[in-house]
Design a protein around this nucleic acid. Structure first.
Lengths: 203, 203
DNA sequence: AATAAATTTAAACAGATGTTTAAAACATTT
DNA sequence: AAATGTTTTAAACATCTGTTTAAATTTATT
């Protein structure tokens, strides 16, 4: 009995999760060391296993949250039957870039780890029902009946997310600063919907 | 003296490189074990170090080749001053998708490892001179003077490459087969230039 | 054929790394 | 205050993993 979720244990668990999230994102699962997580969280090494059983289990918890952050959070927007396609494109651009801008390595992290372990994480994306049968997809199909709407969905995701994949390249080549990247993403946030509307031929 | 590059050592080295390439692409650098490479190449463990000095050195060789495969191979196309922007967009779509279709995990692999080790690999992309001063970029600027041409470059790369990033997600969700993916990429190969031309407002 | 060089092998090394153990410290309940 | 449960710690364990060594084998040179 005794404690359910007291102050101390919560902050310990949260510190571990925070540091784990940061380390996993920076180095990927395999290159992240439990000792680094413990050290940077300022807790004893064995505490990680006490609270999370194993590195793998901790990782799975983190992954679940990040997959949600990358895919599931847009479900309300794309499922809304009361907004037009044009409005959805505006909203998606705004929401996606605003969400990812502060965690720019999230997309590449999630997609990399899904690729390294497809059987484990692939099915966590509620792709079939919620996305495939969304109003968004139907509206894409209506706007361009000749093209598989999934292709347009991928294209728009690419327009919104691909710059985050290229960020390390741009940064390392000394071509773009942190400031400059954020500015260019703010600009893209405004232009992306218009670009997609031109592709779809809607105005 | 003696041997320079005889039959046997070449095939051993090539087998090691082939397997290393495949293993690094599947699991990433950190999760790839030297023992796996040796075993799958059918050579003794120590031979890898004899021929390549270290796992890291072998990886760097592989990476150099893959960065070229992802970025440098388009330099002739984008530098050509005798082709129009429209022609370049056609060529890029054709070349990029044809090159990557047989190695679909190449883009995510390269960009992930650049992110994990930006100082080492980031500067290997000849971004400044060859790309920034290319005819392609000038023509993008001319077509849309109000937008940073680098942004259009990134957008088009996203349209062409992002589906490869999504492939594990689509596959794992059981929504798309290997066959289906290739077919959709063939379709995209045809449509992508038209989409980009609509974004740029050229016809 | 004899010698030298290059390649391959089996075995071991050294350090890293995820995890466990057993005890201590701390908090809660009775 | 004693007893019970929870959290934290230091240390050790067991395995994995990149690399090296020294000898054997194969290939090339003279």
């Amino acid at each position: 009995m005794a404690v359910e979720k007291n102050e101390v244990s919560l902050t310990t668990i949260q510190r571990l999760k925070q540091v784990a999230q940061s380390e996993f994102m920076k180095h990927g699962y395999a290159a992240t060391k439990t000792r680094d997580i413990a050290e940077k969280a300022g807790v004893n090494l064995a505490l990680m296993n006490y609270h999370f059983r194993s590195k793998e289990n901790l990782f799975e918890i983190i992954m679940r949250e990040n997959i949600d952050k990358l895919f599931s959070f847009i479900l309300p927007t794309i499922s809304d039957k009361d907004t037009s396609l044009s409005q959805k494109l505006d909203l998606l651009s705004e929401q996606y870039i605003a969400t990812i801008i502060d965690e720019p390595s999230l997309p590449i992290f999630v997609l990399t780890e899904i690729q390294h372990n497809p059987e484990r994480f692939g099915n966590q994306i509620r792709f079939k029902s919620e996305i495939m049968e969304s109003a968004y997809l139907a509206q894409l199909k209506q706007a361009d009946p000749d093209t598989d709407p999934v292709q347009h969905l991928i294209t728009y995701l690419g327009i919104l997310l691909f710059p985050f994949f290229m960020k390390p390249v741009l940064s390392a080549s000394g071509k773009v600063s942190e400031q400059g990247f954020k500015a260019s993403m703010a600009e893209r946030q405004k232009q992306a919907p218009a670009w997609m509307k031109r592709i779809l031929g809607i105005f």
